[in-house]
Design a protein around this nucleic acid. Sequence first.
DNA 1: AACAGACACAACCGCGGTATA
DNA 2: ATATACCGCGGTTGTGTCTGT
Length: 354
Amino acid sequence: MGRSPCCDQDKGVKKGPWLQEEDDKLTAYINENGYGNWRSLPKLAGLNRCGKSCRLRWMNYLRPDIRRGKFSDEEESTIVRLHALLGNKWSKIACHLPGRTDNEIKNYWNTHMRKKLMQMGIDPMTHEPRTNDLSPILDLSQMLAAAINNGQFGNNNVFNNNTALEDLLKLQLIHKMLQIITPKAIPNINSFKTSSVNPKPEPVVNSFNTNSMNPKPDHPAGQLNSVDPLVFINQSGITPEATSVPSYENVWDGFEDNQLPGLVTVSQESLNTAKPDTSTTTKVNDYTGAGMMPGYYGDQLREIPSGSVSVSPQTTGLNHPGTSQHSSGVDVLEDWEKFLDDETSDSCWKSFLE
DNA sequence: AACAGACACAACCGCGGTATA
DNA sequence: ATATACCGCGGTTGTGTCTGT
């Protein structure tokens, strides 16, 4: 009854990498006799291998129609699309890529494409934007923004000394860095004052088309993405690699000159309450009002009264974020380096954490 | 030059569905 | 009808190569 034992249970069957001699024997046998019964094939071909190993070797390596070499952009695009549709059904995916084996596609996915999607901020399993990883940063940024906007930073809820002002500037810098790291996730500081909803669109580096025309059938990993990388790839003609790392320059491209994303504006009233040291250059900028481009923020724009004051960076030696000096994120990075080198940074962190 | 870590890929392992004695 | 081998698939591991220190 039943079948005879599987060849896998034979003793002394060779394992490991195939020799050229073994490849030649297997190829010669299959070319002459074809394949059908993998179990009996090794003996007939004169190989000390199990049938399973022979099948794998033939299917994944020796088959004449195997297409080797780098995956093309089109193939990558197809793989992403099919993976979104089918999940880890590598053999199914391989059916749509002539000459590619399921094993090769699987390896390519695990070693290359997963990373690309991760760099794009997309979960390679669900094809959805990754948000879990950002939540701690988001929380931190929101805490920062709330503290700054509520004037809770510094002594007695007002910026009444230079230390508080400098700390505020540093916090702005931290917030700016968080915005650069997570440009879509971190709201502007001002949004906390005006509304729970950030009225200004954040600069978006990878403008995925969320109105994907792709069907959304069942997906083994759960719901499909609202952001389909394949749509982006196809429409832009750009591979994920080309856009995977957000450019710091691009992050800032969405802002006009004198437009100050994330800038805390210290009201004249607050300053009147405070007693600024005259040696501190608390300069009145002319960017306020007109510089904030009314209308860009929509109806929720908080009009900044004339005479509102921005915080000058001059006293700390930093190019402070949120000033018009920042034409690009590169400046912020330079400031960040200075900030990290600043030995007083420790106190800033301590104050904030407290 | 030597070493360690990262990377790429071939091959193995184990499981589930199917075929068959 | 059923026990069991076979086949194919997906996950994992092992090993050679590359790269940075």
